[in-house]
Amino acid sequence: MPKAHLKVWRGDDSGDYVEYDVEYEEGMVVLDVVHRLQATQAGDLAVRWNCKAGKCGSCSAEINGKPKLQCMTRMGTFVDGETITIAPLKTFPIIRDLVTDVSWNYRVAETMPELKLSGPDASGHRRMQQIDIDREQEFRKCIECYICQDVCHVIRDHPENQGNFAGPRFFVQLANVAMHPLDQNPKSATVAHGFGLDYCNITKCCTEVCPEGIHITDNAIIPLKERRVDEYYDPIRAIGRKLFGKK
């Protein structure tokens, strides 16, 4: 059986990396190895997980410096004997071992605008065509792993921005509201508010790490920025609005 050489963050803020050797079998993922470590050598190792299949977004960690889902990182992707460093999401306050306090995200979620849909038609259905919703369905794939929030330098390196900046996960949600074919929210509640969108410098790290493959920057953030340009920065549109009345 091959052995993995792990370097796992243990403890809280004043903790440190601890090295372990753990045996593993073909086909295992990092989370399996962490579980084996837990069952054999470190019974109190704190780690979050639920589905083991990349569906719940619980097991996020930084593996060899890259934010990833532990349950979707196969051991086969490492070369034999390589040291595998496993750290918690570094952007968030650490609780213990691989578990961090992600409550900031839940607080931001409360500030997001709620969808307000127009009513159903006479037959009792809300009609929407597939072509009207496939864009938003991409956004709704989000499993709230907060890996994008972790990697985003706006808050990772400048936590003082946390009050003004919702972060990529919530730009995805905001885009969902803004583009919903039946949503009745005024622009002031979505696009115009912005939730700190202009702090994003579209450097795309969020897109690079999103385990759901959501094109966060190209399909959510940039389109939202463009909608803001429509509102505030496009002189031709402004003239159009003056001439033909506000749309």
């Binding site: 990697v151 990772r156 390196d157 400048h158 790290c205 803001r228 496009d234």
Partner: peptide, 25 residues
């Protein structure tokens, strides 16, 4: 990505000069 950046403070494209990026249109 996930590499610490050197700058001490950051305001992205929210302030001058980078707010001018909106002239792309």
């Amino acid at each position: 990505c996930a590499v610490t950046e050197p700058a001490k403070s950051y305001s992205g494209e929210s302030k001058f000069p980078f707010v001018l990026q909106n002239a792309h249109r």
